[in-house]
Amino acid sequence: MTLVSALIIPGIIIRTKSLCSGRKGPALFQPLFDAGVLLRKGVVLSPVTTLVFRIAPSVSLASVLTAVLLVPMGRQDALLSFSADFVYFTYILALGRFFMILAALDTGSSFEGMGANREALYSLLVEPVFLLLLGTYAMFTGYTSFSEIFSHFYFSNNYAFIAGILGFYLLIQIAMVENSRLPVDDPKTHLELTMVHEVMILDYSGPDLAIIHFSTWIKFALYGALVSNSLVPSGWPVALQTGLFLLLQLSFGIIIGLLESFRARNKMTKNPQFILTLTAIALLVFTIMLLSSYMSSK
């Protein structure tokens, strides 16, 4: 289901953004058509590159797909579920990123080196936020895997409610940072010097570029699924759950589109501060959850 929603989210975001800026915007599935065109194109390779450059998109997509297997859909268990699987989730995504960074350095371009460096820095700062949040959820619910945590996540008291809202905020922000969107990176920018993710893939073309697009979309939908999952009630029948899940994924796309439309991009040097603020919020969530479990136990 995550994969299905991955196909439509990018279109929705673009559409929302277009509507917000007063344009009509491209068709909902335009990104898919673009990718289809890319798949039918030839490949241009730089003579500097090695095998690392050619294999990196595949590794990246494979890592994202493996991560998909770990994330439950609605209240249905994930295909692969084990204790502390969110650690595996984080690390397997890091593996994909490792290869993309290497691929950028492989071209020997100073622009791409710069992008790689920024991506490495931002992801290293945002990873602790994610694990901090999931560690907090593990502490709060007493369960240790994605499937269990999300199926036992409920708002038992006011503290948990506040922490839950902050958690949603964090997940959305993490999704934005991890997928190189505003305010950390702007996918629409046209100047190499100011890009992060886009500049890393400057030298990709044809099917390789299509693979990279696929993995970016799926990754984004993956984080959307994390947000949506905690809102789907567990008592409902499977079909209804699936429907609601898709609906939530769509609204996730719309929310992101809205957020991107009304937000300016950070100055490049402010980005680390921005991400460190997220760490602080994650610590706040932890504190609230900690207090709440000790208040309720009394």
Partner: peptide, 12 residues
């Protein structure tokens, strides 16, 4: 990519 054209061009 097999049936498509493969070309070599310097890094952008």
């Amino acid at each position: 990519s097999a049936p498509r054209t493969k070309s070599v061009a310097p890094t952008w």
